[in-house]
């Protein structure tokens, strides 16, 4: 059993490393389409992390929505707004070094604080099982207000996005 656990741990650490490498690729590559593909890699890797943390339904949702819908949207937008031959325009502005230093400093500070904090790990949280039907029940009873509100948000956003992105109607259609 311990060998299996060790292999599982090794696999998860390898996945974390791949996700971080893909994330660095997503912010540094010059060709925007490659960045989008790197982002898809990050999203799939994060879904794998959810599986490692026993959140199976969430992993499925991540792949369906993030990799399925949001990535499609991003790639659509890239296709519609890029001339794909123009891959060698500089993608990063002059503040790259300052940004990298600032980000590194932030990681060191926050990482130090997070390492030292006495996280109150609870045994029942670690061993509890939480299935999709429990999730559904929670959403419908305790969390019903946020659930309804997100529906309204999505509706309002849909209407607004259509208005903002729409080509103007031809002259004769104005009222």
């Amino acid at each position: 059993m311990t060998e299996l656990t060790f292999i599982a741990q090794l696999g998860i650490y390898a996945m974390m490393f791949v996700v971080l490498a893909a994330a660095v690729a997503a912010v540094t590559l010059r060709n925007l389409f490659h960045c989008a593909l790197a982002l898809a890699g990050v999203l799939i890797g994060v879904a794998g992390m959810y599986l490692a943390m026993h959140a199976e339904f969430l992993a499925m949702v991540q792949i369906l929505i993030y990799v399925g819908a949001v990535m499609t949207l991003i790639i659509f937008a890239i296709m519609l707004t890029q001339r794909l031959g123009a891959g060698d325009v500089a993608q990063n502005n002059k503040q790259s070094l300052f940004g990298a230093v600032a980000a590194a400093g932030f990681v060191v500070t926050l990482g130090g604080i997070l390492w030292k904090t006495p996280w109150p790990v609870k045994e029942e949280a670690v061993t509890s099982s939480f299935s999709a039907s429990d999730l559904g029940e929670s959403l419908m009873t305790t969390y019903v207000l946020p659930f309804e509100i997100i529906a309204i948000v999505l509706f309002a956003v849909l209407i607004g996005a259509i208005v903002v992105a729409r080509k103007d109607a031809p002259k004769g259609a104005e009222q």
């Binding site: 509100i149 948000v153 309002a156 956003v157 607004g160 208005v163 903002v164």
Partner: peptide
Amino acid sequence: FVSIVSYL
């Protein structure tokens, strides 16, 4: 909610 509607 308020932010996204504001952007629009």
